[in-house]
Design a binder for these strands. Sequence first.
DNA 1: GTGACACATATTGCATGCAATCATACGCAG
DNA 2: CTGCGTATGATTGCATGCAATATGTGTCAC
Lengths: 242, 242
Amino acid sequence: MCHDVCMQYAPDAATPQPVPETRSLRGRSAAHVAERIRERILSGELPPGERLSERSLTEGLGVTRTPLREAFKILEAEGLLAIVPNRGAQVVELSPADVDMAMELLAGLESVAAELACARGTVQQLAEVARLHARMVACQQAGDLVGYFRVNQDIHQHIVDCADNPALSRVYRTESARVRLYRFAGNRVSARWSRAVMEHEQILTALQQRQGPLLRELLRAHHLNGWRVTRKVLENEVQPDL
Amino acid sequence: MCHDVCMQYAPDAATPQPVPETRSLRGRSAAHVAERIRERILSGELPPGERLSERSLTEGLGVTRTPLREAFKILEAEGLLAIVPNRGAQVVELSPADVDMAMELLAGLESVAAELACARGTVQQLAEVARLHARMVACQQAGDLVGYFRVNQDIHQHIVDCADNPALSRVYRTESARVRLYRFAGNRVSARWSRAVMEHEQILTALQQRQGPLLRELLRAHHLNGWRVTRKVLENEVQPDL
DNA sequence: GTGACACATATTGCATGCAATCATACGCAG
DNA sequence: CTGCGTATGATTGCATGCAATATGTGTCAC
């Protein structure tokens, strides 16, 4: 982004300070690189199974191998990369069984969050969920599948955040990211899409009425329904029609 | 441990291979170092707040700074270390509020695991929990607080493992490790100690009878009771008597 | 005595170099 | 033509060096 600028020499220039507008990145290089690679993985630009060459990434990101390799370790700890000794890093490939387990975990985390969110969520937080819900419906009506999916993920994260437990939010975010790509497939079935929105209506109502146990069951069912369809798509038993 | 042996030169010796008994660690150095540091943190040898000097650790572990710094990144991603730019790594210090949130998360994970464990746990897995329970009781009767605590942690991990969900087990293990040291304090109160064992008896019974909802509630209550005492100890409202 | 500043030292962050390992292409026997 | 061994280039893992930053210490003004 700006590394070419940073690389230029300024022998006697009128600007003595190295690069005024870009605050020094020293000490944040690995985290910054990890963030960039994470984005590329979650967007699908780096698909599961893709091998990540140190050489091309260092050139693409304008950093050297040391911070890049540190970023690899971070992403490996997050479960996004697998590092094979002497063969480098590759984007983790999850089997349907892996995703199954992850979905069970996510459903569990959400069901735990549900009761806490109903008990503790502030009015503002609940309103934010409602706002996101409206945006999601708008995306559906516009046929914007990608936008819908992103806002959908946002809603679920926000519900978890309503539980006001940073550790829970962090784990949910990390584990949700691991399977994001795989879940997208399920939304590409029109029948599921419309039904999911209906389920979301009920979820929103339960949250607003702070009916913890009900919300819990709705979320669990929502997950189960969604994953049942998604698994069939992943296993090529159903062809997506969107 | 063996790095001094590895460092010796063998100019013309009869053993051409570098070090026959120690298989090459190439490609596993960072993970190995992370494991060592993790042990030291979890044992309390490196207490919360401790600054980790690269110099002393490289000398102590017989590795250079590169794999050590990679290990730091891994441990930071696990939530055990905090890396401050230009000031290096230090063991994370958790506030009572942080531990509170973590305990809520752990209780949630266990309650999710409870029903799955009752539904899916094999007879062998349940027997292993029973075996650990017996060992724990033996530790209690021997007054072995440290052994008791370790087996206790093992039991909870095994119950979660009975759910047969690797993702759940992994998250539980990582999040449990983050707060292990802080939880130890609560066991240093004799009244809590004996009551905890009684609760474990009930937990074991519920698991063996595969009563999911009951196990769920027992685990939740067990966590709440334990944490209530531990928090008081951490906040110096109660003096440990063990 | 205390505080502030400057200098010296230690430590960290990152770049680079070297050795081990892997991947690929080639030669050759069958 | 196929299979296998080998050699060579590419890639990774780790060690080390250099620059930026922090830390400790001494000096001096007040």
